[in-house]
Design a protein around this nucleic acid. Structure first.
Lengths: 237, 237, 237, 237
DNA sequence: CATGAATGAGCGTTCATTCAT
DNA sequence: AATGAATGAACGCTCATTCAT
């Protein structure tokens, strides 16, 4: 930001570059072979740096994963929080916002999402360093709080368990993304992603909201039912 | 059951007993520490047998997991298939049946379900022996087929992607179970499980079915709002 | 020898049969895969008996080899001793007799010879149980004694080291046999073996005897140049 | 040799130094306890390096032996080839040259020769990696070719099998060396070695050459009978 | 900072040997 | 005698981590 940076800052940015290279390599390798299935050497090779350099920037293999997770997760969480805490927006908008954030994260960096899903979301409690395990659960809790508040304002049916609603939403989104990650969905175009996002959000809302139809439902149904060739997607004819 | 068993059966059952003991121990240990986080010694200790005996019954650590998975999965899948292929039952019934099977499996053997979820459903493709990875995807595909057929008969809205519907259903159930597995749900009583199951199925159906209310919805809502003792659950044989 | 055998002897012979079966299997397996390269299970399978039975007849794996060696070697050594100590026979006759014994042993049981050569003749001193190592060296020493005596009677040139003579003879015979064992000699017919035996003996005698030609040399040369049917071999009982 | 070495050479020699240290240790340990009788830990301890370093330089235990063999054997074979293909030298000279090479190799590094003899020359075919088994057989084949050529020029009697001649020569030399390796020969002084070498070569030549006496025989006999360091066998004064 | 050689604990697997039946 | 399940020490190999340069 300032015109001149101190030496430390310059070094920091240069150092940061290396650090980021390694982090990037770690994400790719973790996504490809999994945390347990790869060696530090794989990360170093992928990053094009010397073996030992990884240990200059990261205390150990675990911290490497920890950092990958925190980096990826913190951005995700903060964006999520912005959506969830958004004053003046309805539950509907918030739910759609959550789906937006998740699918956008996947669009921007699918491999990072894969790592977050595979290595963070699940994996035995015993092995887990607290922060990792917590990260994922916190997301669900955050959503649960949102649903609890919505119940207080009457936006959500009172007979539903907020924690379960959160699990359903997150589970739907996660397995929706997993369908792409795993190759179950053959069409991985941006349009297909967009459609999936909408279906997930609308189905969920439809399932849990008190009223019959959501406000966005009309346009959604119209869009979907009017033509078979997606006249509006435009991009890839 | 019969008064006398043939020698083969006796021997078979005796040998099978040990084998099953080890398998059981493997499930518990895998559930507790994860496949990568445990050693063969842990399994042996848990089973109360000598180190080498594990290798008498299983070729190696991987085959041990493979067997755990196949054993647990095959029963699950066959029960699932029975539900999905059930002639004369509506989509609604099938969806509820799927939730029944999944939650019943969890009720009977939560640790086995945990292993199946953690070690099978996800984990890097590279490491995976085909059968493992496939097992989970096949489940989703089976559900997708079910939804495709339902679209043909008009039971499911034509504007939904069947594969995505399958992902949503499976994802909802899986994360619902994960909420219990991970401890997010504090109340793990049979009643709480039952409630969760119903909520998941109904929310999903609500979300994707063409009509406004499902046939079970009235009683469901009543049940929920009137008492916590499930006066009507009835189903469970 | 007697008309009736005691129970013990009968049992002994039945027991001996099993024992011999296992021993035979051990020889074959050792010959095929080597002592270190095979497991007790291999021997048991080859013999068609149960795993544990091997341990009824032999204390451990090492004793099994020990027994193979002693059995095979003792007969060989005693036949050798008969030849070497033969009163009234010349050095020439003794040397030819040694070659006879060795090649006959190979003709009768090539695999046993292979084991003796591979597992006994050589192998690091440290590992060796005394008897094994000694067996082979004793053979050489026996031959050395023979040569020493022959020097005393003037049958062998005085300027040769008897121990070395023994090594040469044994080495020639052994590598001659190895040529067959290893497949270097393509023609493994009895005639080819016979010819090899003669060449080895004659070349050795030629090389170390004082005189120009050995007494058998004329007939040998004639035999070689005239016909392949060994008109004179005669010896073989 | 040059005053300055390039960095690469320095590094190469430093890395090579460690590698050679381990190789040296492997030779010594293999010679002492045999390939099967020693553990990697023994090699590491002998070399004075950490366990894992062995695996830094060699892929596995087998490659370690393979390298020992190839290193030792290649030099031996190439020297042998020089002798065998030597233009203008007679069969006599070549045979003596072969003995020279073999005994010189033993003089320079008896333990390496021991390993080559024990672990390479013999050992069950199944276990053998091709190169090992082949190495030894190639040596015999090389000698066989030499003898075949000698027959064509009349230097060797036509009635002898060249392959067998090769086996005899190699066998004589090998067991001659074995006599030293195994301790059968008590006197292992350079002079004793020299005498053994001469006796082996002369006896062999005597045995297979067409003429009565070899050209070197006179001097050989004189040397043996005249010299003051052992007037007449006299055992070990 | 950068490199990669060096270290050694950890773990999967083998297999000789014992033992209950 | 015969069987094969049970035992556990032994050992090869991996790989996270440290260290000298």
């Amino acid at each position: 930001m300032s015109q001149r940076q101190s030496k430390t800052e310059e070094a920091g940015s240069r150092e940061g570059e290396r650090r980021r290279t390694i982090l990037r390599a770690a994400i790719d390798v973790f996504a490809r072979k999994g945390y347990h299935g790869c060696r530090i050497a794989d990360v170093a090779r992928e990053a094009g740096v010397a073996y030992g350099l990884v240990y200059h920037y990261f205390k150990n293999k675990d911290e490497l994963l920890e950092t990958v997770v925190e980096t990826g997760w913190s951005g995700f969480i903060s964006r999520l929080r912005t959506v969830v805490e958004g004053e003046g927006s309805s539950l509907e908008q918030k739910v759609r916002g959550i789906a937006d954030v998740a699918f956008e994260a996947y669009r921007v960096d699918p491999r990072a999402v894969k790592v977050l899903i595979l290595e963070v979301a699940r994996s035995p409690a015993g092995t887990q360093i607290v922060s990792r395990q917590q990260a994922f659960l916190d997301t669900i809790r955050m959503a649960a709080d949102m649903f609890r508040s919505a119940q207080a304002t009457g936006e959500l049916r009172a007979d539903l368990d907020p924690m379960l609603c959160a699990s359903l939403l997150v589970g739907s989104i996660e397995l929706g993304l997993t369908a792409f990650v795993s190759g179950l969905m053959e069409d991985r175009s941006p349009e297909a992603l967009e459609r999936a996002k909408v279906q997930i959000a609308e189905s969920f809302l439809h399932g849990v909201l008190p009223g019959a139809a959501t406000s966005a439902e009309v346009s959604w149904k119209q869009e979907r039912s009017s033509s078979g060739t997606r006249p509006k997607a435009g991009k890839r004819s």
